[in-house]
Design a binder for these strands. Sequence first.
RNA 1: GUGGCUGUAGCUCAAGUGGUUAGAGCACCUGGUUGUGGUCCAGGGGGUUGUGGGUUCGAGUCCCAUCAGCCACCCCA
Length: 430
Amino acid sequence: MSIQAVKGTRDFYPELMRRRNWIMAAWRRVSLRNGFEEYDAPIFEYPDLFTTKSGPEIASQLFNLVDRGGRSLAIRPEITPSLARMVNAKISSLPRPIKWFSMPRLCRAENTQRGRLREFFQWNVDVIGSDEVIADAEGIYTAVDFLREVGLTPADVTVRIGSRALTVSALKAAGLSDESVQAALPVLDKRAKVSDEEFRRLAVQAGMSGPQIESVCRFQDCDDLGALAKAAGGSSDGEAAVEQLRQLLATLRAMGAGEYCTLDMRIVRGLAYYTGVVYEVFDAAGSMRAVAGGGRYDNLLEVLGGPKVGATGFGMGDVVLGLLLEEKAKFPADVDASSVDYYLIDAEETCFPRVVELVGGLRGRGASADFSYARRAVGKQLKEANRRGARFAVIVREDGVSVKELATGEQRDVTAEEFLASAEGSQGNR
RNA sequence: GUGGCUGUAGCUCAAGUGGUUAGAGCACCUGGUUGUGGUCCAGGGGGUUGUGGGUUCGAGUCCCAUCAGCCACCCCA
């Protein structure tokens, strides 16, 4: 083969596709039962939509194209701006809170690494139009609900919850100016990801003094709400942020998600537009990239030309999640095997027309049915049935059929009419 | 975008310091065990050694470029 797949992309052969479908089915199932409605947006947008939200440096990570009219377009690297655009366009007629989810295919022209590709899927869950902590709680709960759904336990993953608002209060209490605060936030986000020396170097570069660094580190290492309020300097903003976290954690405990969640002020998130509660989901070993991340972004809709409306949500990519599920062996065993309800076998070549007829009948009833294209010995056809992952092999004779359950070897003889009347699909696709 | 490591059949790997038609297991296909499967046996297809140049009498083995993967930076929507 002379042309290979593009850097950072995946070919979804049936085996991999089954895993993708399994993940996405769980995303959708969990979203719906948490009261979220599905939406989608175009796969390309005008580049301004993305650069307005996240700044011009994002442009270097965009896949750009030019249409025949000379318009420059960009393939979406995220869906939140599209969501904001869609919601802004109908903001006055949409009942609030707006609880929407999506599972978009996204592209980013980044360098690839383990857990990081150029094309991937990302589950996005957002609540728009509420300033209440309950909205943040629902986002986090939905993420936890999914983790539990796919068999990941608190021993496997942790939701680390921080607060931008509280962190800002702590920085101000330490005496940082408004500009320094903005410069310091991304540095604090790095604290858990770089060495101590490197962190201090960056912090000084961001304009922090030695005592300020000490003070902020003490704040970040604190995991007690009462102590945090003190560490944040006792300002009214700080008190309010602490109270929000208190409510959030209480709500999560009440909903039954408490065991997955832990307070962690080292979670700051890199992006500038987060305003309140922020959180990331990590594997317990901490050896991977974040599985999911999100938080409150109350200014985004306004930045994109809409009213000031509170919003909160998270994104979960399929790549790191897939690695984690693989590592923890959480994919079900049958995700590896293709399967079919019935595999039809002709006992004699002259029975083949009846095989085709029955296959049609079964498929018409919503059962999945397959058969061999080659006319060959029953033994060979059974071998094919086995390989195909059939639940039942159906040997078709002139005078009736033998229905054999492959797992048990049990076999019973019935007429073709009886068989067809009792046949049922396991897929429930009818 | 920068730097390092790697690149042999679909997969996992072999092929002493360059030397004859690049091998094996698994997978796949065919046949047999004379018409009921998962075992076993036999046979078969499949590689211009990621790609393109170069050095050499001769390169999978050396050199350069390029592409891809992995790792570290950057970034992490």
